[in-house]
Amino acid sequence: MDQEGIRHVVQFRLKHKPDSAEAEAFLEEGRKSLSSIPVVKFFEVLRQISSKNKFDFAFSMEFLTQADYEAYDRHPVHVQFVEEFWKREVEDFLETDLKIWKD
């Protein structure tokens, strides 16, 4: 199998209640901002439904290459989102980066 890309998943819990207007605004800002970065593919906002997981939400996205992932990480829109929203509103998180394999 050959590596086809990278899936970046960040599960998180906000300082706001999951069904609040503040949580909805955060999720929408994340979707709008992060999906606008050209190297981001297949961006999704996800809601956790398992009682076995302490996180309420996740952002999931894919990158074609390691270089694309690194470009995303330092992209001004990503940096601004982290500084203006993430650091202020996220209580806890788990970041996972996974290789995507093709047959």
Results as ranks from 00 to 15, higher is better:
9 V>L: 14
9 V>C: 05
10 V>H: 06
11 Q>M: 15
11 Q>V: 10
12 F>N: 07
12 F>A: 02
13 R>T: 15
13 R>N: 07
14 L>N: 06
14 L>W: 04
14 L>P: 01
14 L>C: 04
15 K>M: 08
16 H>S: 14
17 K>Y: 07
18 P>Q: 02
18 P>N: 05
18 P>K: 11
19 D>V: 06
20 S>Y: 13
20 S>K: 09
20 S>H: 08
22 E>Q: 09
22 E>I: 07
23 A>L: 03
24 E>V: 02
24 E>H: 14
25 A>Y: 07
26 F>L: 13
27 L>N: 01
27 L>M: 12
28 E>I: 03
29 E>M: 12
29 E>A: 13
30 G>M: 02
32 K>Q: 11
32 K>G: 02
32 K>R: 15
32 K>H: 11
33 S>W: 05
33 S>G: 05
34 L>C: 02
35 S>D: 11
36 S>T: 03
37 I>C: 04
38 P>S: 09
38 P>F: 13
39 V>C: 14
39 V>W: 07
40 V>N: 09
41 K>M: 12
42 F>H: 14
42 F>N: 12
42 F>C: 08
43 F>Y: 10
43 F>E: 00
44 E>R: 13
45 V>L: 07
46 L>A: 12
46 L>Y: 00
47 R>W: 01
47 R>N: 04
48 Q>R: 11
48 Q>F: 00
50 S>I: 04
50 S>E: 06
51 S>V: 06
51 S>F: 08
51 S>C: 12
52 K>L: 11
52 K>T: 09
52 K>C: 01
52 K>I: 07
53 N>V: 08
53 N>K: 06
53 N>M: 08
54 K>I: 13
54 K>W: 00
56 D>H: 08
56 D>S: 05
56 D>N: 14
56 D>L: 01
56 D>A: 09
57 F>G: 15
57 F>D: 14
58 A>Q: 03
58 A>P: 08
58 A>R: 03
59 F>G: 06
59 F>M: 11
60 S>C: 05
61 M>I: 05
63 F>A: 10
63 F>K: 06
64 L>Y: 08
65 T>Y: 08
66 Q>Y: 05
67 A>Y: 04
68 D>E: 07
68 D>A: 04
69 Y>W: 08
69 Y>Q: 07
70 E>K: 11
71 A>F: 15
71 A>E: 13
73 D>C: 07
73 D>L: 08
74 R>V: 14
75 H>W: 01
75 H>Q: 02
77 V>Q: 10
78 H>V: 01
78 H>P: 01
79 V>S: 06
79 V>G: 03
80 Q>C: 06
81 F>Y: 13
81 F>N: 00
82 V>R: 10
83 E>N: 13
84 E>R: 14
84 E>N: 12
84 E>W: 03
85 F>G: 01
86 W>D: 14
86 W>M: 08
87 K>S: 05
87 K>I: 06
88 R>K: 15
88 R>C: 11
89 E>T: 02
89 E>V: 00
90 V>Q: 00
91 E>T: 12
92 D>I: 10
92 D>C: 05
92 D>V: 06
93 F>V: 11
93 F>M: 11
94 L>C: 09
95 E>P: 06
95 E>M: 12
96 T>V: 12
96 T>W: 00
96 T>P: 00
96 T>D: 04
97 D>W: 04
97 D>A: 10
98 L>M: 15
98 L>S: 15
98 L>G: 14
